[in-house]
């Protein structure tokens, strides 16, 4: 478990991280999202001690990172691996040697190295490329090598710093799928730093949004997208859309199960309610599909609908009309 409390860091006068509180449970895939310069990469580097924090506490399984000596920090880093945006490699060495390198530096037994390199190459799907040079391979393949290399020390935590930002959408998907497989098969906690929302939606269970060094909002990904707190909207860019000009607008979030229960048509029948769907969106979070629908109906049904939705444990909220523009904005 990673416990971060009141974490602060500044470069000279510039505050890079300000009073960060964050808890990441074992086995989670946690996303850190924000604009460039928001401090997310710095926060990530505090977790493996590549950056030092000036105040506050950062504990991994109860161990305060700042209190570790230089030597202890090196050993500790075996348990916290990292992958990077530009997948740096030893250009003069083969793929095999690249994966083996951290173990060679830690003087692992030759047979252990050979066995593990081959296992990991199999896991990430680059077994046929082992004796080529990284320079001959594509970005996606290099990132796979980097992932294999990061797993050689059998870490408990894997830090990913914009690992898919330099890759095309299809390759990004496959790398993210690989990260999820690793999370499931090996139970490794993964912390993903990214500026791409799609990455968060694809792999993360929870997410924290950073802005100018502050953690502005955090929580489970699907809920955050439903409630769309002000800070998230600013990050995503405000969305305006047309909605019913009279009556009330309610947004509901429907999971796959809700949809299979035909919840909306049942509500319509049971409450004798006529409504119009004025906006709808389907989003995928990991394996879940979630529908966001905005319903417009007459004012008189307001309390009945509220009760019905609450009884069925549907997450909902009001949309407010902006009269002048005739547009609907989040309340």
């Amino acid at each position: 478990m990673i416990e971060i409390k009141g974490l602060q860091k500044s470069f000279d006068d510039l505050k890079v991280l300000d009073n960060i509180d964050l808890t990441i449970e074992d086995g989670e895939i946690y996303g850190l999202v924000g604009k460039s310069g928001a401090g997310k990469s710095t926060l990530l580097r505090c977790i493996n001690g590549l950056e030092q924090y000036s105040a506050g506490s950062l504990k991994i399984d109860g161990v305060e990172i700042k209190a570790l000596s230089r030597k202890e920090l090196r050993t500790f880093r075996k348990g916290v691996s990292m992958i990077f945006q530009h997948f740096p490699m030893l250009t003069r060495k083969t793929v095999y040697e690249n994966i083996a390198f951290p173990m060679r530096c830690w003087k692992y037994d030759r047979q252990v190295i050979d066995k593990r390199v081959k296992e990991l190459a199999e896991l990430v799907g680059i077994s046929e490329k082992l004796y080529q040079r990284p320079g001959q391979l594509s970005g996606g393949q290099k990132q796979r090598i980097a992932i294999a290399r990061a797993l050689t020390m059998e870490p408990k935590i894997l830090l990913s710093d914009e690992a898919t930002s330099a890759l095309d959408p299809v390759t990004t998907r496959s790398i993210l799928q690989l990260l999820r497989d690793i999370n499931e098969k090996l139970g490794i906690t993964i912390i993903v730093v990214t500026h791409q929302m799609s990455v968060i939606k694809d792999v993360c269970e929870k997410v924290a949004l950073l802005e100018a060094g502050e953690l502005v909002v955090s929580g489970p990904v699907d809920e955050l997208f439903m409630y769309q707190p002000e800070e998230l909207k600013t990050f995503l860019g405000e969305e305006k859309f047309h909605a019913g000009s009279s009556g009330i607008n309610i947004q509901v979030m429907l999971s796959d199960q809700d949809m299979s229960k035909n919840i909306l048509s049942r509500m319509s029948r049971e409450l004798d309610l006529d409504f119009t769907i004025v906006n709808s969106e389907m989003e995928r979070y990991r394996d879940k599909y979630l529908g966001y629908l905005v319903l417009n109906f007459s004012e008189q049904y307001k309390s009945k609908v509220e009760d019905y939705l609450d009884q069925n444990k549907i997450i909902w909220r009001y949309y407010q009309m902006n009269k002048e523009e005739g547009l609907c904005q989040d309340s």
Binding site: L50, L73, R77, K78, P88, R92, C105, W106
Partner: peptide, 27 residues
């Protein structure tokens, strides 16, 4: 970035200088 990556594996700085930087810079 390569130097940072190597440090993130807990490789000692002496090894980073000789086994990474020197080896990469050799050509």
């Amino acid at each position: 970035g390569l130097v940072e990556a190597m440090k993130s594996f807990g490789i000692s700085e002496v090894q980073v200088v000789f086994r990474v930087m020197f080896s990469e810079a050799l050509p």
